[in-house]
Amino acid sequence: MAAGPAPRREGASASRARLADRYRAWRDHHSLSAADSLRRVLASPGSSLLTWLVIGIAMALPAALGIALDNARNVSGSWDSPAQISLFMQASVDEASAAELQQSLSLRGDVESAQLIPRDAALREFAELSGFADVVANLDENPLPNLVLVVPAAGVDPAVLRAEFADLAQVDQAVLDMAWVQRLNNIMELGRRLVLALGGLLVLGVVLILGNTIRLAIESRRDEIVIVKLVGGSNAFVRRPFLYTGLWYGVGGGAVAALLVLAALYFLDGPVSNLARLYQSGFTLQGIGLIGSLQLVLLGGFLGLAGAWLAVSRHLGAIEPR
């Protein structure tokens, strides 16, 4: 019986391998496919490197922008000082009563601090800063009102507070200085969405690039696929090596992306910390770290699988023995 076909009964039972053996065979074929695919990817280092670079660059772009945004948010976070309410006094309110108001406001629980800027001091400052000293000197009368700057306590809605202060008898106008914070936040939000949109597009691009690469791999192995199907290879069996090929391209691309981002950060780190030192800020550039790098590699692998799946489901079914 060692050689040649067995009588059919024995042949039938022998071909029905046990479940445990099946599982081991399935696992074996996975590692075999993985190794074989990797070998094929490495066998043409030039074109594989090109694929990795294309994918790496496409992934590094949104990743780097995302990191830039995170850093910008860190910076603006430190500016995210509580909103400030400017209370412009009525012209009739003199410095003494303005100081009185400032005193009483600063005692309130919902006020963090209140600061008086006397109208004379304000004018002096204006004259110095604006360069209109001559004009100011020629003024008969100081046109500026006394000003009290109020910083609301944490957790207090500055808009509510502003409305209350606006009703005070001494107050002519109460202005909430939040516009610039809001503008900055809007810009950050815009940036975030742009990065998301760009990231989405590039991710799609990566999937399509990989899909096309896998399609070419499928084309070049068409004869082999036909033969495997002829001798009873299931779709899963035929699919497996191509999915691994996609995985390897994706993982490599993700690694390249992580390296590119690291290189960019390294390149920027010097200038940024110089700048931070100039502004006496403790700001340091936030990198992607080990976790972030691993995430990029994982994402790459996932995209590779997705692209391969796309190609395989579109093109493998069409290859049937004729």
């Binding site: 036909v226 033969i227 495997v228």
Partner: peptide, 28 residues
């Protein structure tokens, strides 16, 4: 099945070609 045009995998050796149905069927 035996085909007139053999239908062999030309980048694999004889052993691997013959083994293909068994690999597919999941033998150890």
């Amino acid at each position: 099945v035996v085909f007139q045009n053999h239908q062999l995998l030309y980048d694999r050796n004889v052993f691997d070609n013959v083994a293909l149905p068994l690999v597919i069927a999941g033998y150890d």
